[in-house]
């Protein structure tokens, strides 16, 4: 029998587990402490649980922490970890990005991705599977640098809001008192705009939202991001515009700059028009070409001009520093290299 992970279970789920095992209800809180607050890696080390309780838990569960099987270190300090997943020959990528006082972990929410964006390396793998909440939490729990971590971004492999149940569970564990007690203001979930998932995330979490925009023009965005056919950016923006983010919660827009495609004066003008009334910031991102792509990145001066113009028009805009280029830190680069891809027989 395959045993289930304890890691990744919410307090409510742990309560169901202990009650099913005829253990006292408070055992759930004790297990949560061991899973999310203390530095142990096995059920045997849960020393405030009786021997009998530990044995009965071990009959059905394993702790669930998994060490990385590979790590690559960039000259700039970025590290990319590869964790085995529950799917054979499929890997989970996690990038640790230290930067002065801010140390960010970029976590994955799926193996591969279904969204098929033209510029994305992860999409080349196709979709391999959903990550469980445990596999998401493990990327943080098993990180050697976890003590120095300040921020978490769901911007690794996969579309987080195409895996809403597991992503929401992982956010609960990260931000709850019983869990890792992180401030939700230190966590950002990035989406290409899956509307039902976005509504659930906005209503049931306090974490920041980042939306991958990449073009303000429908026809152009459609060619870059097939999701535009289903969830047009105007509908995504309407939800963002009408949602009360309060004083602390933030929405930002990710904008990869492609030479001669989305980096013109018309794009600046249209971005200002469609983002009117939304308190937000734009992160401009350099495009680092992936194999066989028809796209090129905008040059440095164009990006600077684009940034300055948007700032002048009142939209706070920054250019994100590229990190870990020497270790293929862009999502999907490492795991796609490791993936043993079989030919799909369905077509």
């Amino acid at each position: 029998m395959n045993k289930d992970f304890l890691l990744g279970k919410t307090l409510e789920e742990l309560t169901h587990i202990v009650l099913d095992l005829k253990l006292p209800k408070f055992t759930a809180k004790q297990i949560a402490d061991w899973l999310y607050k203390k530095d142990i890696t096995s059920i045997d080390e849960m020393s405030n649980l009786s021997q009998k309780a530990r044995e009965s838990i071990k009959e059905k569960f394993i702790f669930g922490n998994i060490s990385s099987t590979k790590v690559q270190c960039s000259v700039d300090g970025t590290k990319k970890y590869l964790y085995p997943s529950n799917l054979p020959h499929k890997f989970i990528e996690t990038a640790y990005i230290p930067d002065r006082e801010r140390n960010t972990l970029c976590v994955s929410s799926q193996v591969g991705c279904k969204m098929g964006c033209l510029f994305c390396m992860t999409g080349k793998q196709g979709f391999q599977g959903q990550l469980s909440s445990g596999e998401i939490i493990n990327q943080i729990r098993s990180l050697p640098e976890r003590e120095s971590l300040t921020n978490i971004v769901y911007m690794g492999m996969g579309e987080p809001l195409d895996n809403v149940p597991e992503v929401m569970k992982s956010l609960e564990i990260l931000t709850s008192e019983y869990g890792m007690a992180m401030s939700p203001r230190r966590i950002t979930v990035s989406t290409i705009g899956i509307i039902p998932g976005m509504i659930e995330f906005l209503n049931n979490s306090e974490c920041h939202l980042a939306v991958s925009l990449h073009s303000p023009f429908d026809e152009e965005r459609k060619k870059l991001m097939p999701v535009q056919n289903v969830y047009p950016i105007k509908d995504v923006l309407e939800i963002v515009r009408n949602f009360d983010f309060g004083r602390q919660r933030r929405v930002s827009f990710e904008y990869i700059m492609f030479k001669g495609i989305n980096d013109t004066a018309n794009h600046i003008k249209e971005l200002c028009r469609i983002l009117d009334g939304i308190k937000c910031r734009i992160n401009l991102i350099r495009f680092h070409p992936i194999p066989n792509t028809p796209l090129d990145g905008s040059d440095e001066s164009t990006m600077e001009y684009f940034k300055d113009q948007l700032n002048k028009k009142g939209i706070t805009t920054t250019i994100r520093r590229s990190r870990g280029l020497d270790i293929f830190a862009a999502c999907g680069m490492l795991s796609t290299k490791e993936l043993v891809k079989r030919q799909n027989e369905d077509y």
């Binding site: 991705c113 098929g116 999409g123 979709f127 056919n229 028809p294 799909n344 369905d346 077509y347």
Partner: peptide, 24 residues
């Protein structure tokens, strides 16, 4: 499926089809 769309799109682009003539 995403696998088919991505594989066919790459194939078409490699064979000279402009990406902006592909709707997925």
């Amino acid at each position: 499926s995403p696998e088919m769309v991505v594989e066919v799109r790459d194939l078409l682009i490699n064979r000279g089809v402009k990406y902006n003539r592909i709707v997925a």
